[in-house]
C-alpha cells in the first residue's frame, strides 16, 4: 500500500461562498486503490470538497491535482475516469432503472450494445436485477441508492466518489454498500467516501476528519486511535447502584470525561495513574477494563479538543 502513488493531491484548497468559507485551506492526498474516508458533521464542507475534485466547482484558491493534472484545466480528460455519486439523488424518477443506466452510460460515449451487458452485470453485482424495468420513482430509498451507485460505476471509472451513499438507508443496505465498496477497492479502484457514521469509517484505509471547513485529524483508523488515545478508554461496570458520585468524582479529580452506557460508564481517561488510584479507593463499587477506542471517541475528542483551544 505504501508504495502506491498519490492519485489525488489537494493543496490549500479554499472555497468561499461570499464571505463564508465552506472549505478553508485544507490539504490532503489520496493513494491509489485505497478506501478514503471523509468524515465530518453537517456543513463541514465534505460535498464542497468533492465537487472541487470532480470539476463541478472552481476553487476560490488552492490546487486540486488528479494524477498530477490540475482538475480545472483537464476536466475533459479526467471526467471519464471519475465516477461521482452525488449526495442528492440525481437519476430521473420517470425513467426506468434500465433507461437511467443507458442514459448515464451514453453520456460517457458508451455504445448501447456495450452498456446493456454492463448494466445487467452491475445490477447482478449489486443484487437488484429484478428492478431493471421499474421506474425509479417506485423504488425504495435503499434500492434507489444502489441504482445510483450502479449508474456511477457504469463507465468503469477508477476513481469513485461516494457522497454519503448510506445516508438514510437501513442497516442491511449499509452493510451491502460497504461490502460493495470493499470489493471495488480490492479490484484496484480508489474509493473516496463521505459519511456521518463513525462506525463505517472503521472500514476505511485512511481518514480525514473535517470540521467547519478545516481538517482536524488525518490518518488510518489505527493511527488516529493511537494519536488521540495514548491511554485507552475504560469501561466501568457498577457492582452497586451508586453511579452519580463516581461520575462527579471523575470530573472533580480531572481524571477524564465519562458517558453513561447500559450498566455503567464509558470513561475517556486522561490520567491513567490517577484513575487506577481512584479505582482502588472504590473497590467493590465498580470493576473496569480498558477497551479499544472507537472512531466515534476519536471524533468527539478531536472536536472537543479543538473547541477547547
Amino acid at each position: 500500500m505504501k508504495t502506491e502513488p498519490n492519485v489525488i493531491e489537494v493543496e490549500n484548497l479554499t472555497v468561499a461562498f461570499g464571505d463564508f468559507k465552506a472549505v478553508d485551506g485544507i490539504s490532503f492526498y489520496v493513494k491509489r486503490g485505497e478506501i478514503f474516508g471523509f468524515l465530518g458533521a453537517n456543513g463541514a464542507g465534505k460535498t464542497t470538497t468533492i465537487r472541487c475534485i470532480c470539476g463541478l466547482l472552481n476553487p476560490t484558491s488552492g490546487t486540486v491535482l488528479v494524477d498530477g493534472k490540475d482538475v480545472s484545466s483537464h476536466t475533459a480528460v479526467l471526467k471519464p475516469r471519475i465516477g461521482y455519486m452525488s449526495q442528492k439523488f440525481t437519476l430521473y424518477p420517470d425513467l426506468t432503472v434500465r433507461e437511467n443506466l443507458l442514459f448515464a452510460g451514453s453520456l460517457y460515449g458508451l455504445r448501447r450494445k456495450d452498456i446493456k451487458p454492463r448494466a445487467e452485470e452491475l445490477m447482478r453485482f449489486i443484487g437488484l436485477s429484478q428492478h431493471l424495468n421499474e421506474p425509479v420513482k417506485l423504488l425504495s430509498g435503499g434500492v434507489k441508492q444502489m441504482v445510483a451507485l450502479a449508474a456511477t460505476l457504469l463507465h468503469n471509472p477508477d476513481l469513485i466518489f461516494l457522497d454519503e451513499p448510506t445516508a438514510g438507508t437501513s442497516p442491511i443496505t449499509r452493510a451491502d454498500f460497504w461490502r460493495l465498496i470493499r470489493t471495488l477497492a480490492q479490484n484496484g479502484k480508489t474509493v473516496f467516501v463521505t459519511t456521518h457514521y463513525m462506525d463505517e469509517a472503521e472500514y476505511c484505509g485512511r481518514i480525514v476528519l473535517m470540521e467547519r471547513g478545516r481538517i482536524i485529524a488525518t490518518g488510518t483508523p489505527e493511527e488516529l486511535k493511537k494519536q488521540f488515545f495514548p491511554v485507552p478508554p475504560v469501561e466501568l461496570v457498577f457492582t452497586q447502584p451508586r453511579q452519580a458520585s463516581v461520575r462527579e468524582d471523575l470530573q472533580r479529580l480531572n481524571l477524564g470525561t465519562a458517558e453513561n452506557f447500559s450498566g455503567g460508564l464509558r470513561v475517556r481517561v486522561t490520567d491513567m495513574e490517577g484513575f487506577k488510584a481512584y479505582a482502588q479507593t472504590r473497590e467493590g463499587v465498580f470493576t473496569y477494563r480498558p477497551v479499544a477506542p472507537t472512531l466515534e471517541d476519536v471524533f468527539l475528542k478531536a472536536v472537543s479538543g479543538r473547541n477547547a483551544q
Binding site: 470539476g55 461521482y84 452525488s86 440525481t90 437519476l91
Partner: peptide
C-alpha cells in the same frame, strides 16, 4: 431542481 444537473455535469457531456 431535480438534481440531475449534477449528474450531467459530472459526465463528459
Amino acid at each position: 431542481e431535480n438534481g440531475s444537473m449534477e449528474l450531467l455535469l459530472s459526465t463528459p457531456v
